[in-house]
């Protein structure tokens, strides 16, 4: 059943050979990226490319460094006390680890959606969506109104909340809260959106909706999604990276990773002989 879905939804991309991948536009890439928590090294030098307007899934057993990896992509990793990074992360031609880089600008271009929905509890639905704009100095009412409607529409939440925009964000269900958080991220017009296990706290129906949403966002955004759910990775991603113990074991088109991986470890993990 699961395999059928993959077969039918398979796109030309997923069967592409690695050499053809090289010609796609690379949105972000990392070079020898290492991440530390104090003296503990969580990532051992990752080289990876993230292709523009595609969804890239990151899979692997828990503790393999997949969350740490995407938290390096928007420099959220170093927010944890004692954490630091080495190596390079590029967004287009920009080196994100350069000294004089504007962190705020980076985080606006690279949005993030977290494991558990985290709407701001004291803000209304409206203010939650435009928090990134309002708290960055944008006061124009009609601009904000438009941004809120646009973002909620894109996040497929507009119909459900348009009559209660001034209600607390906490009044929504878990799945709605997560889509609110996606709308919130969309409002600042990012180019890349990072999803850190966005469905792990949701029920199957909400998960379906969020997956659908991510699928539709690929048109305009570059997506990176961490997931522990292999079916989910297979369903929504074009490329997949398999992480194990802080290293990138294998990276390639999702179709290839899931049907004919190069490495034995990848196959063991995919087929469930491991973890």
């Amino acid at each position: 059943m699961e395999n059928d879905t993959i077969e039918t939804e398979m796109t030309a991309e997923q069967t592409m050979t690695p050499s053809l991948e090289e010609t796609r536009k690379v949105k972000m890439f990392t070079e020898d990226l290492k991440a530390y928590f104090g003296t503990f090294r969580a990532l051992h030098g990752i080289d990876m490319r993230i292709f523009s307007n595609r969804a890239t899934a990151i899979i692997g057993p828990s503790g393999c460094g997949k969350s740490t990896f995407i938290r390096c992509l928007n420099r959220m990793h170093e927010f944890v006390p004692g954490a630091r990074t080495e190596g390079k992360v590029f967004l287009d031609e920009k080196d994100l680890f350069k000294k004089d880089i504007d962190l705020i600008e980076i985080r606006r271009s690279i949005g993030m959606v977290f494991q558990r929905p985290n709407p701001f509890p004291t803000l209304s639905i409206y203010d939650n969506v435009c928090a990134g704009l309002k708290l960055s100095g944008i006061k124009n009412k009609s601009f904000l109104n438009q941004a809120v409607e646009e973002s909620l529409l894109k996040a497929a939440l507009w119909e459900e909340v348009k009559d209660k925009l001034n209600h607390s964000g906490m009044s929504l269900s878990g799945g709605q809260q997560q889509r609110l958080c996606i709308a919130r991220a969309l409002a600042v017009k990012p180019e890349v959106i990072l999803f850190d296990e966005p469905c792990s706290a949701l029920d199957p129906i909400s998960t379906g909706k969020v997956e659908e949403l991510i699928h539709s966002l690929k048109e305009n955004y570059t997506i990176v999604i961490v997931t522990h759910n292999m079916q989910q990775a297979a369903r929504i991603s074009d490329y997949t990276g398999y992480f194990y113990l802080g290293t990138l074991v294998e990276f390639g088109a999702t179709k290839k990773i899931f049907t004919n991986p190069d490495k034995q470890e990848t196959e063991d993990y995919i087929t469930g002989r491991f973890g």
């Binding site: 959220m76 985080r107 606006r108 977290f114 708290l135 960055s136 600042v188």
Partner: peptide
């Protein structure tokens, strides 16, 4: 996660 949620939006 609340702090990170805000910082991830590019809020100072």
């Amino acid at each position: 996660t609340l702090r990170e949620g805000a910082l991830a939006l590019g809020i100072s």
